[in-house]
Design a protein around this nucleic acid. Structure first.
Length: 426
DNA sequence: TCTGGGGTCCTAGGACCC
DNA sequence: TCTGGGGTCCTAGGACCC
């Protein structure tokens, strides 16, 4: 068990209904109204304003199932716009880096702060300032939970969401057991669907009960991660703060189709386009891929008898970031697993065993390879400058009829000059 | 008609070796 | 004829996160 003594105070900063808050930035008229944001393809509900939550709309609900409530209550609906959310996220994180001594960016809308060096007497005013500055500079409301461990700071944050101040500090709280008793077992960070079911079967229904369960029993009936969670509930830090950004180990690009696809050529277009996308991504992070996995599948929600899912992994002879090489192998893999007569719903590729290209030297690098490198560089620059897919391979298709649905896009993007919000002078 | 996408880590079990 | 036991490495699949 790893014990991490230097962390004493951890804050979790979480943006409230982040995607909804981003959409609201440029549309003040939806500020107090129920709003939801849909996943890719307008499939599921992935962000809800508090007003939408109050209507009983659940996280992850398929859109078509919630449609009735949505129409009846005049809920504002948006397709997701990741370019905008990513840009706003970067702004929030920049502020946190500026204000906090140490930060771990945990997800697009969350960050852990190490506040161990901040004295107890100024902690409340410090945290309030963080919250106020983010709101003032970006317009994004946040909640902040403070505790001795990451798991407890998650719980503090969970409670802070309902507080008017938006801030909850559990450090030194004498009634911690009473608080943990009110936290349902499936709301504990690190306890998912399967473990909840198992714990409930064994009479462990809330965070307090998990905290008081023996480590040995947890470890033997589950794994080390679960026992770490229990330790963290006791206030013993076991999950470290990752303050430096490690390079990713894999890169996946996949999408569901707007309409089911049977035709090989259309699948090939999609796979080509996703491969180009992934290749560009790893180049921008100076990574090289050692292998590629291509996968296709039919819908999970239809007739199980006609379900087909398959994948193929191909190793590159030499780790690469070359778009042409990656596309070539992706199509080879697709040919291998494609079966006629199925209505495909989703396809994608995963580049894995990623290496840091700055640390990798190829003994066989040649003049030809250097030429390819500079070709990739100019493609990336052009696409950065003039918009993605300005330069592409003909194989990726021009019309992209298979592209996903985005019926309710706000078409605002603070990261793209041509999609900036405009103000009409009257 | 319509049910997201992108990650990480752990474990069990097989293959292989001595 | 009897057919051991312990170690490592790899991979697929599962569970979790947002």
């Amino acid at each position: 068990m790893s014990y991490i003594p230097h962390i004493k105070k951890i804050a979790l900063v979480d943006c409230n209904s982040f995607y909804v808050s981003c959409e609201r930035l440029f549309k003040p008229h939806i500020l107090k109204k129920p709003v939801v944001v849909l996943s890719n393809n307008d499939g599921c509900i992935i962000s809800r304003s508090s007003e939408a939550k109050a209507l009983g709309i659940k996280m992850g609900d398929p859109y078509f199932k919630a449609k009735e409530i949505i129409i009846k209550n005049n809920v504002h609906v948006f397709s997701s716009n990741y370019s905008l959310y990513g840009d706003i996220s970067r702004r929030v994180m920049r502020i946190l880096k500026y204000l906090a001594p140490e930060i771990e960016i945990y997800s697009i809308d969350e960050a852990f702060l190490n506040l161990s060096s901040i004295k107890d007497n100024i902690l409340p005013s410090f945290v309030k300032k963080v919250r106020d500055v983010i709101l003032q500079w970006t317009g994004i409301p946040t909640s902040i939970g403070i505790a001795n461990t990451k798991t407890l700071s998650k719980i503090a944050n969970h409670i802070a969401k309902k507080e008017k101040s938006g801030i909850v500090n559990l450090i030194g709280n004498q009634n911690i057991d009473q608080i943990l008793e009110k936290i349902k077992i499936n709301d504990v960070w690190g306890v998912g669907k399967q473990m909840s079911k198992f714990y409930l079967k064994n009479g462990i229904c809330n965070a307090k009960q998990l905290k008081n369960t023996s480590n040995n029993w947890i470890k033997s009936s589950s794994n080390v991660l679960s026992s770490r969670t229990a330790m963290e509930l006791r206030g013993i830090p076991c999950v470290n703060l990752e303050t430096y950004q490690t390079k990713r180990k894999s890169c996946c690009v996949s999408r569901s189709f707007g309409k089911k696809v049977e035709n090989f050529q259309i699948l090939a277009e999609a796979i080509t386009s996703y491969s180009l996308n992934a290749a560009e991504k790893i180049r921008s992070e100076s990574l090289l891929a050692k292998s590629i996995t291509i996968f296709i599948r039919t819908s999970l929600f239809q007739n199980k008898k006609i379900f087909y899912s398959n994948s193929k992994t191909i190793d590159f002879p030499i780790a690469t970031d070359n778009s042409i090489e990656i596309v070539k192998n992706a199509l080879k893999g697709l040919k291998f697993i494609f079966k006629k007569g199925y209505k495909y719903q989703k396809t994608g590729i995963i580049l894995s065993e990623l290496l840091d290209s700055e640390k990798t030297h190829n003994l066989f690098s040649s003049v030809k390879e250097n030429k390819i490198k500079s070709l990739m560089k100019s493609i990336d620059y052009t696409n950065y400058r003039y918009g993605r897919s300005t330069l592409s391979l003909a194989n990726a298709g021009i019309n992209k009829k298979w592209n996903m649905r985005r019926k309710y896009s706000s078409k605002i993007d603070t990261a793209d000059f041509y999609c900036l919000p405009t103000i009409k002078a009257i």
